[in-house]
Nucleic acid binder design. Structure first.
Lengths: 363, 363
DNA sequence: GCTAGTTTTTAGACCAATCCAAAAACGCCA
DNA sequence: TGGCGTTTTTGGATTGGTCTAAAAACTAGC
């Protein structure tokens, strides 16, 4: 495809046009060209136009590496998630990307797979690239001092979804505590008395918050049945946990799940046992991923708005970069219980299910 | 958190330790330190250890911007996808990330949302950052000359999943043509004669390949019923299309879908109509995302192995970077029909469904 | 026409690495 | 001890921008 020895170029070696060349072509100094590139108001209109014409004519390409060397900003961010294959994170990253894009920022992405070591390597790498800041969904088992370390580096860091270390720190996430309470209240209102909670380690905040919501709800409603199963948070775990629970006596009449993946697994597990989710045992998930409307029955879930969280996190990061010493902020979005058919629906499980995120009515 | 005026540092201003400082501390020259950093075999063992000790002692941070200025490589890649919220891309990005991580590469990610303009902006930005190469899932409506433009830039580019422009180019994807044929053959073997195909625009290769597979299969099996519906490829489209089809006479007895999202939508639409997917109308998807095992019935789908495609694409890119003038390569992974219960299963739709990706048996 | 004040432009140092070619150090043997 | 071939080390040029402070070019007022 590419002819060897005679690379096709509009004009000379396209990779080597520098500020100096533009300056010569336009009959001004290097400094002036630099000012034009950065849209400085110092430059006179006529000069600006002249320089811009030269830039076009020579096919100049701005060299961000060189600019970063002397300047203070790279317009670059590092983003760490622990499971990009989870559609929840997909939506969140889309939100981050949209917000950053609007501000002329661009981001590195790493998938830590919940490995603190891998996360650490990436963060060090980001430091070498002189990114302006980090968006971090800390991997499970992250050393809480990591936040202090980043602070010591002078690296702005916004934690997302989970947080480690001591406040004050920048954080964007959902109110998981409240989310679980909403789910519990709903189930209690439907008459459930034996409600279990499925999934999570205690290593990080997002899990602790959920568990606390569970325990507080039990107390508030004076429920004596208490069953909290720890696990990683995949479909497979959901299947295993529900099977374990249904074999017990008494079995729960409802389960609230750490996330939608676990809830999907729980529903699947119930089917394996010949039980009908939503009839024999109510199931509520957390996240409200798009897939929640699928399945039979459609999953009732606590919506945590990943796209909005992503945008919010990006906004926070940009604000911190602009004012490094400003007060730390925590943005905690309110969740919303999205009622569908997996928690004792009035309609038959195989009946019509809505596609739009509009809550179904329940008696 | 961060004390103003007295930033906490282990030793001096941590951000300003340079090669020069290391050289002075270790009693060698700047050049030698540089060689040590790049793990050059030229350096004597004793010197290497001495320098490494100084690097640790002073808390040195490598400056990749500076290195990129003089050197030829940045160990950096740009990745463009068009819908990161789609779990298929999530898995693919995870594959890319894993493969790059192993080779010490790190990547920028952009979500084009199928906007060629946004894609273009990102690519130009990547050029300014001097990335070593691009992994591109071209946005719908991408001008085919884009590939020539990138080539003109001297920028290695591997297209993924879709491709535009004329071969030879580097490409990693799945054999969508063969995938559709497998699905069609399976349906015909089950006795279906009226099979429709749902979804896709004709703008890019991946859709054309699917359609061609559909039409060829019709011919090969001498089927006269032909119904191919164009659309974007979301759940919503699946619902709409299946409802339109079922209102026709004759209605299809089976549908093959552009991707799993459309297939999920189709199953949902059938339920809306009071029909049972897999009984009243067989449904086959493409991608085999993890969610395919959910739902009722579990979705039969053509597995296209996104994680593997991602790894393969990354591998191709690294190879091209190493040998810019080598022959272009196209890696096309064979798809595999993952038979479950949505296409005329022998078991009852509400019965046990498997979680593991092991094919269900059919009479 | 001269001066003071404002607007534009510029020279030259600087950022932190890599590259190249040449110099220094080393080892070995006559 | 000198000479020769390796192995290591090094100085200085180079990369392509930004920054700062000062110079130059205008403008208006007297």
């Amino acid at each position: 495809m590419r002819q060897d020895a005679s690379p096709r170029q509009g004009q000379r070696d396209t990779a080597s046009v520098t500020l100096q060349d533009i300056a010569a072509h336009a009959g001004v100094s290097r400094s002036t060209v630099s000012l034009v590139l950065r849209e400085s108001p110092l430059v006179a209109e006529r000069t600006r136009l002249k320089v811009q014409r030269s830039i076009k004519a020579l096919g100049y390409v701005y060299n961000r590496g060189a600019a970063a060397l002397r300047g203070s900003r790279t317009s670059t961010l590092g983003v760490v998630v622990y499971d990009i294959a989870n559609p929840f994170f997909g939506a969140m990253v889309a939100g981050i990307d949209a917000a950053l894009n609007r501000e002329g920022y661009v981001s590195f992405l790493a998938n830590s797979e919940d490995s603190p070591a891998r996360q650490q390597r990436f963060l060090e790498r980001m430091r070498e690239h002189r990114v302006d800041g980090i968006l971090l969904c800390p991997a499970e088992g992250t050393d809480p001092t990591l936040i202090d370390t980043l602070d010591g580096w002078g690296m702005p860091c916004v934690q997302v979804l989970r947080h480690v270390g001591e406040p004050p720190f920048d954080y964007a996430g959902a109110d998981f505590h409240q989310g679980v309470c909403q789910a519990m209240d709903h189930l209690v209102a439907l008459g459930h008395r034996r409600i279990a909670f499925l999934g999570g380690h205690s290593e990080h905040s997002a899990t602790r918050e959920r568990w606390q919501g569970y325990r507080e709800s039990l107390e508030r409603h004076r429920l004596t049945y208490q069953r909290l199963l720890r696990s990683t948070v995949t479909r497979r775990d959901g299947v295993a946990m529900i099977q374990q629970l249904m074999a017990e006596s008494p079995a729960p009449s409802a389960v609230v799940c750490h996330n939608d993946l676990v809830a999907f697994g729980a529903m699947l597990g119930l089917k394996h046992l010949g039980r009908v989710p939503g009839v024999d045992c109510a199931v509520i998930g957390t996240d409200d991923v798009e897939e929640a409307t699928l399945g039979d029955p459609a999953l009732t879930s606590v919506a945590t708005h990943p796209h909005a969280i992503g945008e919010e996190a990006a906004r926070l990061a940009l604000r911190r970069i602009a004012t490094p010493e400003g007060a730390r902020e925590q943005v905690v979005l309110a969740p919303r219980l999205q009622v569908r058919d997996s928690c004792g629906a009035t309609r038959p499980p195989s009946g019509a299910t809505e596609l739009n995120p509009a809550a179904g009515e329940h008696a």
